[in-house]
Write a protein that binds this DNA or RNA. Structure first.
Length: 870
RNA sequence: GGUCGAGUGGUGGAAUCGGUAGACACAACGGACUUAAAAUCCGUCGCCCGUAAAAAGGUGUGAGGGUUCAAGUCCCUCCUCGACCA
């Protein structure tokens, strides 16, 4: 099916086949399953759970974001995430750390439920099958996970504690019911969080989403907005990612200002980040949903306003606020009084103002805000200049920059920043407004009208009171109903679970009904990194002492698509747990890296239909479909099932082995870079591993190579120097995580050098195998074993380089004339600047370019170069 | 529209604090080995100009300008692509 399958399969040494006995090539299909079984049976990577044993060594927690176990199975994109984390875990283990490196399954959620509906099979069955497939596929790659800690978010042993943590949030008043405008997806029959909706569509499926007012569970993440923002400074995350979180939280400082309505005792409050421009406010706008709209609208305008509001409410936020769309609005007939100069200004209703942001009302300053300017221009509202500094007349374009206040009474002559402070002080003094901080972050919509998720540990009494269940009553198990499909009316599937599940009698005898919503997909992943620390605890989510030892996660790696959602939600829960005294760190993930995506070539015809690579055929420099001859376009895109360009990790392992897959994924580029998959490149690293094999094993005899000696490593001084260079570079590059590609380059250079030496000291070879082991653990272990060592090389001590081996007696000095390279000089390493200068001036090639011209300046960079300026 | 990031050979990518551009691979080409092929080993490999072949030289990191003894790297302007946000 895929291109590389055409390449001949790896040679499998035929066991017991007399004719083939003389041939002993590198055979990953033999050695990899063998050592994987050994690691499993001897529990090579099991981490002790006993705190006293743990305390004998420092800890390191390496975590790759656990996968959502969809039916598509594992592809090389997943491996691009897990290979670098595994290399790093191996590296730290060899450096003498207790390494936490676990794996588990994010198993609740919509995609599985959709498959269940489509294939008419229970989500629990599908999940079981999917997780088994994932585990099998992941295990073939030879990762050093402690499998005894495996978790599955969809089993009661796990979600019992998700419910338990929810109760802690509930007790703290952080979970509440509210009638909120929600993103209702008719196709899915559920509400979605803001984060799951983009451009009016569900991000996963593209199904349209509409606005509805519904009673929902909310989590008060906004209560932690400031902490979530400030504590970003404590983290070793990529700056860009922190910036995205900051932006998502969207803190803006400004003022609430109260506007009285003319000829009325009513008033409304606006939030603005530009109180300095209050003198320039020439109208106000209420959001269509604003409660005051119906009260203040003049009877003459009532029908127009009513119609406008009705239409606006169904639009998405994006449609409403997009700068590119034409502004619409309608005048209410009422006026507000500008509090700074008592001028009446008209009140409009317009959908570019959102009820969910700020107060749902704005003061409009068309002179200094792009949207207001556009709106005022369209409706002929006056535009006033109150900040001087634009290079176009204020009627032509708004000026949003910094400048000096004009036409602004007591603010005239002040800079924007001073004017803001003075205006806020004035408003506060007059009782007309106050300093205010506003966030873009909204509370988290936490309930779903679906089946495949955690039930809430809450019950409703007849009088409407909500009662939380006792910790001992957990878990509230998901009832095994068959009718889990969504209904038209938004009634959750759990409402059909039957009275046995629905009806509860409380310990005090009162009758109650269970909450029938479920938690969203993100719930389980909000705390899974804590459960790994104590995965089988039946008394608590995790042991406090173990938590104190292991947390925080030192190195977390995952896709950039989780830069805001998962990472923000998990940080929020963690902070709540911290405030409950349940965890010891303010932040869960100290270090974090986003691995790049794997791209692959895809083939598409003019109609947009995708073709598998083997359905395409090259004709000249164009591609056509084999069957129909239709011309095809090729492009490098992100790997995905729908683009027919997925490379399955199993196929690569079948053809080349897991070590090749691991090495290739790292060799194609930096871990954080997105790079295209190239079948030919896989061959390259496969050849490298074969060279490593032949370095140790004589393919004809199957014995150790004749070149190998027991002599000290230093007998081959060139090799010995290259080895120490390799130790140094592999150590540094592995430490960086991102530059594992150049670590592999250096190992290749070492192997090329070693192939050319007359003898090969086993000592040097064994040291090299240590370096290779985190990257290609199977071949390293096998050769380690063949060299007569017992035990696992994965448990051996990481080597350190000797700087004195690296320094040589002579160095190459670059001789430049006027900045251009003219010759390379071999000089003693300890040559003085003067000696270097003399040597350079004496050099024939250098002299040719000086041509007797006077030397104006000489720059010497020690051990590097000399530049003679003439 | 905004913010951030990135543009280096035929390809993936190296290049520390500004100090040898193109490491390591892939592909291609040439050679050795072979009855032959595969595999393996050796060699060439930015462009231009040169040459029997070399040597020597020029030029070159998206475009243009600047700073510097020295720029892929720093600064300014622009172009293109990507990510995120609106």
């Amino acid at each position: 099916m895929l291109e590389f399958i055409h390449i001949k399969p790896i040679y499998r040494a035929a066991k017991g086949d007399e004719h083939d006995m003389e041939n002993h090539p590198y055979a990953p299909a033999e050695i990899e399953p063998y050592w994987q079984a050994e690691w499993r049976e001897k529990e090579a990577f099991k981490v002790p759970n006993d705190i006293e044993t743990l305390k004998t060594k420092p800890k390191f927690y390496v975590l790759g974001m656990f996968p959502y176990t969809s039916g598509a199975g594992l592809h090389v994109g997943h491996a691009k995430n897990y290979v670098p984390t595994d290399v790093f875990a191996n590296f730290r283990r060899m450096q003498g750390y207790h390494v936490m490196h676990p794996m588990g399954w994010d198993a609740f959620g919509l995609p599985t439920e959709r498959t269940a509906v489509r294939e008419n099979e229970h989500p629990a069955h599908i999940t079981k099958r999917n997780t088994e497939t994932f585990q099998q596929q992941i295990q073939r790659i030879g990762f050093s996970y402690d499998w005894s800690r495996k978790i599955d978010t969809s089993v009661p042993e796990y979600y019992r504690w998700t419910q338990w943590i929810f109760l802690r949030l509930y007790e703290k008043g952080l979970a509440y019911l509210a009638d909120v405008p929600v993103n209702w997806c008719p196709a899915l029959g559920t509400v979605l969080s803001n984060e799951e909706v983009k451009d009016g569509k569900y991000v996963e499926t593209g199904d349209p989403v509409e606005r509805r007012l519904m009673r929902q569970w909310m989590l008060k993440i906004t209560a932690y907005a400031d902490q979530l923002l400030e504590d970003l400074d404590l983290l070793d995350w990529p700056e860009g990612l922190k910036e995205m979180q900051r932006h998502w939280i969207g803190k803006s400082e400004g003022a609430d200002i109260t506007f009285k309505i003319k000829d009325s005792d009513k008033a409304f409050t606006v939030f603005t980040t530009r109180p300095d421009t209050l003198f320039g406010a020439t109208y106000c706008v209420l959001a269509p949903e604003h409660p005051l709209v119906s009260e203040i609208t003049h009877p003459d305008a009532a029908s127009a306003v009513g119609a406008y509001v009705k239409e606006a409410i169904n639009k998405s936020d994006l449609q409403r606020t997009d700068l590119a769309t034409e502004k619409t609005g309608v005048f209410t007939g009422a006026s507000a009084i500008n509090p700074c100069n008592n001028t009446p200004i008209p009140i409009w209703v317009a959908d570019y103002v959102l009820m969910t942001y700020g107060t749902g009302a704005i003061m409009a300053v068309p002179g200094h805000d792009a949207r207001d300017h556009e709106f005022a221009s369209a409706f002929g509202i006056p535009i006033l200049e109150v900040i001087k500094g634009g290079d176009q007349p204020i009627e032509e374009a708004p000026f949003e920059g910094d400048g000096v206040c004009v036409n602004s009474g007591f603010l005239n002559g002040l800079q924007v920043a001073e004017a803001k402070a003075k205006m806020i002080a004035w408003l506060e003094g007059e009782g007309k407004g106050s300093r205010q901080v506003q966030y873009r972050l909204r509370d988290w919509l936490f309930s779903r009208q679906r089946y495949w998720g955690e039930p809430f540990p809450l019950v409703h009494l007849e009088d409407g009171t909500i009662v939380q269940l006792l910790d001992e009553e957990l878990p509230v198990e998901l009832p095994p109903i068959d009718a889990y499909k969504p209904t038209e009316d938004g009634q959750p599937p759990l409402a059909r679970a039957g009275s046995e599940w629905l009806n509860v009698t409380l310990p005090d005898g009162r009758a109650a009904t269970r909450e029938t919503n479920i938690m969203p997909q993100w719930a389980g992943s909000c705390w899974y990194y804590l459960r790994f620390l104590d995965a089988h605890n039946t008394e608590a989510p995790f042991d406090t002492e173990l938590e104190r030892y292991w947390m925080p996660v030192d190195s977390y790696m995952g896709g950039a698509e989780h830069a805001v959602l998962h990472l923000l939600y998990a940080r929020f829960w963690h902070k709540v747990l911290y405030d409950c005294g349940l965890v010891s760190t303010r932040e869960p993930f100290q270090g974090l890296l986003n691995q790049g995506t794997i791209l692959a070539e895809s083939y598409q015809d003019a109609r947009g239909k995708y073709y598998y690579p083997n359905e395409a055929e090259q004709k000249g420099d164009k591609f056509v479909a084999k069957a129909s001859g239709v011309p095809l376009q090729t492009q490098i895109e992100k790997m995905s099932k729908s683009r027919f360009n997925v490379i399955n990790s199993d196929d690569v392992i079948d053809n080349y082995g897991a070590d090749t897959l691991r090495l290739y994924l790292l060799f194609i580029g930096p871990v954080t870079a997105s790079t295209p998959w190239q079948d030919a490149g896989v061959e390259g690293v496969y050849r490298f591993l074969q060279r490593v094999w032949r370095l140790v094993i004589d393919e004809d005899s199957g014995e150790l190579g004749e070149k190998l000696t027991d002599a000290p490593g230093t007998t081959e001084s060139e090799l010995w120097r290259e080895l120490h260079k390799t130790i140094k570079q592999v150590t540094e590059d592995t430490e960086s995580i991102d530059k594992m590609n150049t670590a592999i380059s250096q190992m290749m250079i070492f192997v090329n050098t070693a192939t050319q030496t007359k003898t090969l000291p086993k000592e040097a070879l064994k040291i090299f195998l240590h370096l290779l082991s985190p990257y290609a653990p199977h071949i390293a272990q096998e050769l380690w074993h063949r060299l007569g060592e017992t035990g696992f090389i994965a448990h051996a001590q990481w080597p350190t380089h000797d700087e004195s081996v690296l320094t040589s007696a002579t160095v190459t000095i670059i001789a430049q004339v006027n900045g251009k390279l003219r010759n390379r000089l071999q000089l003693p390493a300890d040559a003085t600047d003067k000696e270097i200068e003399e040597a350079a001036l004496a050099d024939e090639r250098v002299q040719r370019f000086i041509e007797g011209k006077p030397v104006r300046k000489v720059i010497v960079v020690p051990n590097r170069l000399i530049n003679i300026v003439v």
